[in-house]
C-alpha cells in the first residue's frame, strides 16, 4: 500500500524536491478550475498501489489523424472503431491552434474511482502487471458504474462501453492486446505510442500530478520539432 508521503508525492507528480516544492502552492491555484478531484476529495479516498506507467499526451503536437485511436481499437478489439478506442481525440476543425484539438487518455488514477465503483472486481488493479487499472472482460457485468464514476471526475469518461461485445473498456497500457504481436504493459510498448506519426504520446514511470490536466498534458516537442517550423515552447 501507498503511505501518506507517497500519496502527496503522487498528487504533486513525479519525485524530487523541486516538484514537491511546487506541489501545494500550485495545487490551491488549480483546485477551483481543475478537472478531476480536489485535494480535499482525494484525501478521503482509498489508496491503491500506483500504476507503474502513465500515458502522457501533447495537445500542441497532435496532428488529429486518429491513428492512435485506430491502433488502440485494432490492437485490443481486432477491428476498427473510434468508439472502441481508449484514447480519444476531439477536434474543432474551424477553431484556432491550439484550441482546435484535445486528446484525452486514461489517467491510471492513483485513486481510481472506476476501480472503487466496480461491484464485481472486474475493474481492478493488476498487481502482477505493474498495477495497471484494467478490466477483466469475463467478470464485467455491464453495470457501467465504472463509466459513470469516471464521468463524474473526467470530461469525458475515459472508461467506455464496448457496445458490440458488451463490456467496459479502458486503457490497460496494452497489457492485453490479442491482435498485436508486441509485449505491452508498463514495461512494454503501447500501440498508440508506437503508431502516432508525430510522437505526441509517450509513457512515463513517474506519477503525474493528479489534480488538473497539467500532469498528463505535457510538452513533447523538442529541437527537431522546432526545426520543422512548429512551436516548441
Amino acid at each position: 500500500m501507498v503511505n501518506r508521503r507517497d500519496f502527496l508525492k503522487g498528487i504533486a507528480g513525479g519525485a524530487g524536491a523541486a516538484v514537491a516544492g511546487f506541489a501545494l502552492g500550485s495545487l490551491t491555484d488549480t483546485i477551483e478550475k481543475a478537472e478531476g478531484r480536489s485535494f480535499e476529495e482525494i484525501k478521503t479516498m482509498v489508496e491503491t498501489p500506483p500504476s507503474e506507467a502513465y500515458l502522457l499526451v501533447d495537445r500542441e503536437k497532435c496532428a488529429g489523424c486518429r491513428s492512435c485511436m485506430l491502433a488502440c481499437s485494432l490492437a485490443h478489439e481486432g477491428k476498427e472503431n473510434l468508439s472502441l478506442s481508449r484514447i480519444q481525440v476531439f477536434e474543432d476543425p474551424l477553431a484556432g491552434f491550439p484550441d482546435d484539438l484535445v486528446q484525452e487518455q486514461c489517467r491510471q488514477c492513483q485513486y481510481p474511482e472506476c476501480v472503487a465503483a466496480c461491484p464485481t472486481g472486474a475493474l481492478s488493479v493488476d498487481e502482477v502487471n505493474g498495477n495497471v487499472r484494467l478490466v477483466d472482460e469475463e467478470k464485467c457485468i455491464g453495470c457501467q458504474r465504472c463509466i459513470e464514476a469516471c464521468d463524474q471526475i473526467n470530461n469525458p469518461a475515459r472508461a467506455a462501453w464496448n457496445h458490440e461485445d458488451e463490456y467496459s473498456l479502458k486503457c490497460d497500457l496494452c497489457i492485453d492486446t490479442p491482435h498485436w504481436e508486441e509485449n505491452g504493459g508498463p514495461d512494454g510498448k503501447q500501440a498508440c505510442v508506437e503508431i502516432c506519426p508525430v510522437n505526441a504520446i509517450k509513457t512515463t514511470d513517474q506519477i503525474p500530478v493528479q489534480i488538473g490536466q497539467k500532469g498528463y498534458k505535457v510538452n513533447l516537442r523538442g529541437k527537431n520539432w522546432e526545426k520543422l517550423g512548429f512551436p516548441s515552447e
Partner: peptide, 20 residues
C-alpha cells in the same frame, strides 16, 4: 501552427493556425 492529417494519415501534411 500544428500539422494536421486526415484519418489514418502517417504524414499529416496540412496545418491549423493560431488565427484559424
Amino acid at each position: 501552427v500544428r500539422p494536421q492529417g486526415c484519418v489514418s494519415c502517417h504524414r499529416c501534411t496540412r496545418k491549423r493556425t493560431e488565427s484559424g
